[in-house]
Design a binder for these strands. Structure first.
Length: 220
DNA sequence: CCATTAAGATACT
DNA sequence: AGTATCTTAATGG
């Protein structure tokens, strides 16, 4: 076992970089051994409503957009997954053996590590750090959801657009976002004209600058 | 060039 | 805020 490397080195290094202070070394080894690493391009649908999930995703690189959808197919952005994040809703889905209630789309090109659910139960009892990670992830998402609901109900469309843009800038670590007004409208469950109106206003207030398919954040 | 599509404008709900 | 409709501008073949 000394010279044999049973897993992907690249993946191992990524995990180590992110989790060496959080997970026990043996756990990191186990994650590498039983996880399957897959990479995706941008805008790939990882998961759709109604799909059955039996693996838990862990983000190794890139970011993933998590959305809900109503019966008419209208969408609403819930939150983003970044490096080291896992999706609490998926966690719930797989432990309960339910169908997915969400849709997951890659935001940039991504690498995800898929962990079989049977491992999860095992690790829950064997590793304290894993337990803490899973519970912490639930906590984080719950709070984020509450914040989203708060914004949705108590804030104006303009506030929501501003939050959306700065969230997106934070995720992509860039101030120029390649996005169209109708994409924003779709994510925020609004219409293109309304977004255009708000974007025009923000531009007049020198908060953003825009070209076709491009928005640049100014007040940073 | 022209077709397509993003974004602006205006008017009405 | 949202819808409908029209106009204008950018982009890629």
């Amino acid at each position: 076992m000394s010279s044999f490397i049973p897993f992907d080195i690249h993946c191992y290094q990524k995990l180590l970089a992110k989790f060496q202070d959080v997970f026990e070394p043996e756990l990191i080894n186990e994650i590498c051994e039983s996880g399957k690493l897959r990479s995706f391009d941008r805008d790939e649908i990882l998961m759709d409503i109604g799909m059955v999930i039996n693996e838990m995703p862990l983000v190794i690189s890139g970011s993933v957009k998590i959305m809900t959808e109503d019966d008419q197919g209208d969408e609403l952005l819930l939150y983003y997954l970044e490096l080291g994040d896992t999706c609490a809703i998926t966690l719930n889905c797989c432990t309960q053996q339910q169908k997915s209630s969400i849709k997951a789309i890659t935001e940039e090109s991504c690498e995800l590590l898929f962990i079989p659910i049977n491992k999860m139960d095992d690790w829950m009892v064997r590793y304290k750090s894993w337990r803490a990670f899973v519970l912490g992830s639930y906590n984080l998402r719950l709070n984020e959801m509450l914040q989203s609901i708060d914004h949705l109900v108590f804030h104006s469309m303009e506030d929501r657009v501003i939050k959306y843009l700065s969230d997106k800038a934070g995720i992509s670590k860039s101030n120029s976002l390649k996005i169209t007004h109708s994409q924003i409208a779709n994510d925020l469950h609004s219409s293109r004209v309304v977004i255009s109106r708000i974007m025009k206003k923000l531009e007049r207030e020198n908060k953003i600058e825009q070209r076709r398919n491009l928005v640049m954040m100014l007040d940073v």
